[in-house]
Computed example of a mutant assay.
Amino acid sequence: MGGVLATDDSPRKVWTPETKIEAKMVEAMKQRESKGSSMRSFNTIILKFPKIDESLRKCKDIFEQFDEDSNGVIDQEELKKCFNKLEISFNDEEIKDLFEACDINDDMGMKFNEFIVLLCLVYLFKDDPQALRAKSRIGMPNLEATFETLVDTFVFLDKNMDGYVSKNEMVQAINETTSGERSSGRIAMKRFEEMDWDNNGMVSFKEFLFAFTRWVGIDEVEDEDEED
């Protein structure tokens, strides 16, 4: 994941998307960022964790419904059926691109947290006519409100509105909340490292989403299921 730093005649370095999905993600996020964020501090985000956690866990029923062979993952064929059921109109190539983008283990099976990330990307893309096409909204108002909160959070973190969150932007966001606290820098670094899983110094919306599912404990849901 990630791109390359363009070092042409531009006065500042620009992060270039590496894949079509990442480019669509960045473009859709820039359009959303032009509207601004309602978030005022990182504490505002943290206070929303319990409600977000509750909403995302309700996706488990949807996930299990479309995991037809009950093996704990959704494959591409099952995902196609899922999209048809949710009235999300993507062609085979778009579904393949999305699947591969969210299947971070490259095991051809989408786990629950990966499925949540995919649905949130669908939500992000839905209003962009040049991006992946959706015939209708996901159809779950509460879930859409949760996805909007996640998008709004990323907009708050991405101060320069380039579609990525840098280490400096994360530090700035944390410092706005914990101004004067000696530990604020360490907190920011820890949060950023949790998001930047490919260690390239820039965090995409997808990376942010995967980190967020861990922060609210979605990974623990999977661990509990495996133990059962």
Rank of each mutant, 00 (worst) to 15 (best):
G2E: 00
G2H: 05
G3T: 02
V4R: 10
T7Y: 11
V14T: 12
K20L: 12
K20R: 14
K20A: 06
I21C: 13
K24C: 02
M25H: 02
M25V: 02
M29Q: 05
K35H: 11
K35G: 04
S38H: 08
S41D: 08
I46S: 08
F49Y: 15
P50Y: 04
D53L: 07
R57N: 13
R57C: 10
K58C: 05
K58A: 04
C59Q: 09
I62Q: 03
Q65T: 12
Q65V: 00
E68L: 09
N71H: 08
Q76Y: 07
E78D: 09
C82I: 01
C82Y: 00
N84V: 01
I88F: 06
D92G: 00
I95R: 03
I104Q: 10
D106I: 01
D107G: 06
F112S: 03
N113I: 03
E114Q: 12
L118T: 05
L121V: 03
Y123L: 03
Q130G: 14
L132P: 03
R133D: 06
M140A: 08
E144D: 12
E144M: 11
F147V: 00
T149E: 09
L150G: 04
D152Q: 06
F156W: 06
K159E: 04
V165N: 01
K167T: 00
Q172I: 00
T178Y: 15
S179C: 06
S184G: 03
S184Y: 04
G185Q: 11
G185W: 05
E193D: 10
E193L: 12
D196A: 06
W197E: 07
D198F: 08
N199H: 14
G201E: 05
M202S: 08
S204Y: 07
E207F: 11
E207D: 12
F208K: 07
L209D: 03
F210E: 04
G217T: 01
E220P: 06
V221P: 09
D223M: 12
D223P: 05
D225Q: 13
D225E: 14
E226T: 06
E226F: 15
D228S: 10
